[in-house]
Design a protein around this nucleic acid. Structure first.
Lengths: 192, 192
DNA sequence: GAATATACGGGATGAGCGTCCCGTTTAGGA
DNA sequence: TCCTAAACGGGACGCTCATCCCGTATATTC
């Protein structure tokens, strides 16, 4: 591979990472090319489809995330590890619009991309949750899709004014809800 | 106005309502026309832009929602009214993909549309929340954007398998979190 | 029953975007 | 220095849509 080829691939990757983080996944490929200082042909030769660009970026991102999850699991009790990971994911995605959109399922399957990169994001999350539930730190009927949706909820808060205090409050609310067991429906007067 | 004009306007409106509910706001206008059994020209004469179609539909929907909120506020104590409204919103949007997308802010400002239709959705929600907080039924630092984001989170759960039990669980979790006051960060060991 | 304002259908238009192609340039080895 | 494979740029193409337009059809009025 020629030296300028390697260099330009890197430049495209860096520009795309920054562009997706600040402007989201729907930014045109031509705009990524412009920011990288190359032509659109160069982008599409290195990354034949837009999705392949996503994948290249997501795979490094997912590696970090899975690494952090394993570190937390190894160094903290189950409940603490789970809640710390929840917070970590929300903070990461709050700083990266592309990641937030991928998590929200906006036209891109992040877990499939992770799996194709050799990482098991879904399994890692499931493990953290299961251990926290065994330890009694998370209500037992919660599932991983529930947790993902709650993360999306925390991220949705960012749309109307990104605000670190509000973000923190959202994580608190969700964490408290995951802990508590049951609540009585005040209108129907039944235990939910 | 000619009789067939009135009739076709109605047909377009009905078809659009059903189409947006099942397929979301990104369904092509031409597809709405097809389902209504009219040409695209007929749709765009009655509703010059796609947004005007949204507005026509949302305004009736918002009227129902505001009505329900006022009814709950009048017939239940503050806390009960608030939590019942939360559940109501989630259930409504779970059955209506277009409403869910609008709530999630997917390219359409539902509150602006409500306001232009003479309804004050934002104010109604704020009132329910404020009264519940005064009554001590919701933690005092929560804001209406927080609540909206949590609703979006509950709706996000629907993406990975619509499931009435899971939806109910999501509302429970969020409700419990809104009730509880504070939680200690297990990793940083500080009160959040 | 004729005249006319209204409404209809669906093709034309134009914008935005991803992908592909090809004439041109250049890196790197002989 | 020269040659060639590799890479480049950016225009062409194809697709999806929303919106507009206009020739045709029809409801309504006198």
């Amino acid at each position: 591979m020629r030296a300028d080829g390697v260099r330009n691939r890197r430049r495209v990757l860096d520009a795309a990472m920054a562009a997706f983080a600040t402007d989201g996944l729907s930014i045109p490929v031509a705009e990524v090319a412009r920011r990288a200082g190359v032509g659109t042909g160069t982008v599409s030769r290195h990354f034949p489809t837009k999705e392949s660009l996503y994948e290249a970026i997501v795979s490094t991102r997912v590696a970090e995330i899975v690494g952090r999850a394993e570190e937390l699991a190894a160094t903290h009790p189950p409940g603490e590890a789970f809640y710390a990971f929840l917070r970590y994911m929300v903070d990461q995605a709050a700083e990266n619009r592309g990641l937030a959109e991928a998590l929200a399922g906006a036209g891109f399957d992040i877990e499939a991309a992770a799996a194709s990169g050799g990482h098991d994001l879904a399994g890692t999350e499931a493990g953290l949750l299961a251990r926290a539930q065994e330890a009694g730190a998370v209500r037992p009927d919660v599932t991983t899709p529930d947790v993902k949706a709650l993360i999306v909820g925390c991220l949705a808060r960012e749309q109307t004014g990104p605000d670190a205090i509000a973000r923190n409050r959202m994580v608190q609310i969700v964490s408290a809800g995951l802990l508590r067991e049951a609540v009585r429906d005040p209108v129907e007067d039944v235990v939910l």
